[in-house]
Design a protein around this nucleic acid. Structure first.
Lengths: 138, 138
DNA sequence: CCTTGAACCTCTAGTCACTAGAGAATGTAG
DNA sequence: CTACATTCTCTAGTGACTAGAGGTTCAAGG
């Protein structure tokens, strides 16, 4: 049995965040000492590691709640869990696609100013003001 | 001169968002009719287009405030503006890198379950529970 | 046993960039 | 002049935390 601070150290999840997860129902309410302090065991550690890993992968609290529910009803859970993971993957891919378009435009913008001459007008500001300078839509 | 609704239609920025931008100091306080309704002109339209474009590119409100300030003091503004754009570019690239790692792991996770056999345990849930299954760190 | 000080408790409020809704006033078309 | 869409201000909610106040408890050293 160990304290919330120890759990925090082992999982790299900050103390207030652990309490927040408990409040959100991701973590079961922890046992308490006679003095009302939380105590955790190995199961609590594993659960929190699971949550942290899922958050690192960009799953929302809501998705994680679903995944935890699935863990507790193992019958036919695999398909549903895979669906959640796949939807998360679609999400990530959409974000990558969008960011790549942004990258392209930012590169073009940043390059404009420091050419070989002195530019009268700032290319960055001009680019932002005039959308028609973009070679893609967003 | 046109209303906030008209401005909203032309820029695709929602009405409450326009008011929010005004409150944040991104937009100058609009002229008002005798009945206290906001009226905009072409300059207002351009300013809002600029803001929307910058937001689309992921610039924070704070960065946009800086860019607007630079617009108003055109002397030596180019270098500073380019710095902001470059920092934004670094940011976007870091995000892309991270998302690509996530993509990789999610692909691996999602593939686990629907192989040719029937898996006893859900690979998605197992992957999340056991970080050592990852082939990269995050 | 007692003290010290780190760690813990609850609670409220703040972050960012909006979004939603209430309730009242205004603008415009027929 | 009457509908009724639009606008106004204000407050509160979103997601996933983070920060701080003010008070209590735990563990180690004397």
């Amino acid at each position: 049995m160990f304290s919330i601070g120890e759990l925090s150290r082992r999982t790299k999840v900050k103390v207030p965040t652990i309490r927040y997860y408990e409040e959100m129902g991701l973590l079961a309410e922890a046992e308490r000492t006679s003095g009302n302090q939380r105590r955790y065991d190995h199961a609590g550690l594993e659960r929190l590691s699971f949550i942290r890993h899922a958050r690192d992968l960009g799953f929302s609290i809501e998705s994680i709640l679903s995944l935890i529910e699935l863990q507790e009803h193992p019958d036919r859970s695999c398909q549903a869990a895979t669906e959640i993971a796949t939807s998360q993957l679609m999400d990530v891919r959409a974000k990558i696609k969008r960011l790549r378009a942004l990258e392209k435009e930012l590169v073009r913008m940043s390059k404009g100013c420091d050419g070989d001459g002195v530019s009268e007008d700032c290319y960055v500001l001009a680019s932002l003001a005039d959308h028609t300078l973009c070679d893609h839509e967003h």
